[in-house]
Design a protein around this nucleic acid. Structure first.
Lengths: 236, 236
DNA sequence: ACAAAAGTGTTCAGAGTACACCCATGT
DNA sequence: ACATGGGTGTACTCTGAACACTTTTGT
């Protein structure tokens, strides 16, 4: 028990719990919304598919713990991350009384996938419609995370977390198609996204996908931050 | 430790925590968004203002615990309630390593305030702009809860949780004014809310506020549930 | 010259916004 | 008759939705 001014006097008699975080990590590749899953290494349930998680230590917050996990995995420490929900059904974990706080995060797949390969985790990107059964309540976490992601994506500039620093409109459109799982009219998309003021057109073209080449954009950080606070309608 | 198939083998060596829930309870009265606060009864920090909370037991979920608290307080068990966030900063509680899951809920003030009076809790409704300092991170919980409430209220039919079973349009409008903290044009409000299909006009009038009397409405449960899933734009 | 992706504009319908007067009734 | 709150309609603007052809350029 940590140093404290006036400890709870019946501290020892109360129920205590282990505390864990689990991360739902999303990315988009090949026009699909994908999720990073792991082969669990510890008993119980070793060898089954799960989210990446960790117990938390006495001196870290849940957010610290989630960042720590993502850093170990990707080598990146500026990943978009939000708390999702605390899962605490009694007996949710056959390993003991463990309460878990789920986080969800977004990463740019192509930018990082090399690092996953050299990593010693047994990780796999799966499309969200081809997800295998996950252990414990991790399936429920994913369902909730997808719902939350779609809700955020509708009103906050979130698609940008899934796209490289410089990107084409087609790439961005395709991220939104993957998140919302429906086709988007490209003319209306361009019109609306350009009107938002979020994008700055660069004087460069990406020639990898067509002979004509398509303009690269980056996003305008000021507008981006404003819209994170105020919200904007990103329904297409 | 509960019965389990294969317990974590280093269970005893890991950090363990007490686990609590705290409830942010909102209501609307006299055109103000209000919050229920309590004089804390236990040490440490007894006598200061706080949210209503409780430790959770081994065999209840956080949701059960939050419902339990609200039931004790109000005598009602069908209160609108959502999980807000898990607060776990190290040393957030001087009483020991306690992690808290915050919930927020909405209740109809006039319907229940009698029960608060006979209750032995030292409770008080305060307008959100006249809130005193709260203990620990409870102020932060409230700030986040207000933000979440406003977000929900914009897109989901939530105002109805704050209004009696039969209500006038003026009452409903005034709930939305309180939540969003700005005046709403009553003609546009009527037009939009009636178009949503959420309301059924009753063949009764409330004559307590004017000589002419104003029609009472109730909400249409089917439409209500649909809009809870799909969402609707409740910005006025 | 042709294939393949990029880029561009218009029309229509529906929703939001601003705004001012008459209605019903108890006293 | 009048005071009080309840109830109603219109014009304008803006946004969203549907929809098809031209441009560029490497081969």
């Amino acid at each position: 028990m940590a140093a404290s001014l006036t400890p709870y006097k019946d501290y020892d008699s109360k129920s205590k719990f282990l505390f864990a975080v689990d991360c739902t990590v999303f990315g988009v590749s090949e026009n699909r919304l994908r999720l990073l899953i792991f082969e669990r290494e510890v008993e119980p349930l070793a060898g089954e598919w799960s989210l990446l998680g960790s117990f938390i230590n006495r001196n870290e917050s849940t957010r610290d713990a989630a960042s720590r996990i993502l850093l170990e995995l990707t080598g990146l420490d500026n990943i978009y991350m939000e708390q999702l929900h605390c899962f605490a059904e009694p007996n949710r974990d056959p390993g003991g009384p463990v309460i878990s706080v789920a986080y969800w995060s977004l990463i740019k797949i192509n930018q990082n996938d090399r690092e996953f390969n050299v990593d010693n985790h047994k990780a796999r990107w799966v499309s969200i419609d081809e997800m295998p059964e996950l252990i414990l309540d991790h399936g429920e976490m994913v369902t909730m995370a997808i719902r939350r992601l779609r809700e955020r994506a509708k009103f906050y500039p979130i698609g940008f977390e899934l796209v490289p620093k410089e990107f084409t409109l087609r790439q961005l459109l395709s991220v939104y198609e993957a998140i919302f799982d429906h086709k988007i009219d490209d003319r209306n998309f361009r019109k609306k996204i350009l009107k938002s003021g979020l994008l700055t057109m660069l004087d460069k073209k990406d020639k990898t996908t067509s002979r004509k080449g398509s303009y690269l954009y980056e996003f305008n950080k000021d507008t981006y931050r404003q819209l994170q606070d105020k919200g904007y309608n990103f329904e297409f």
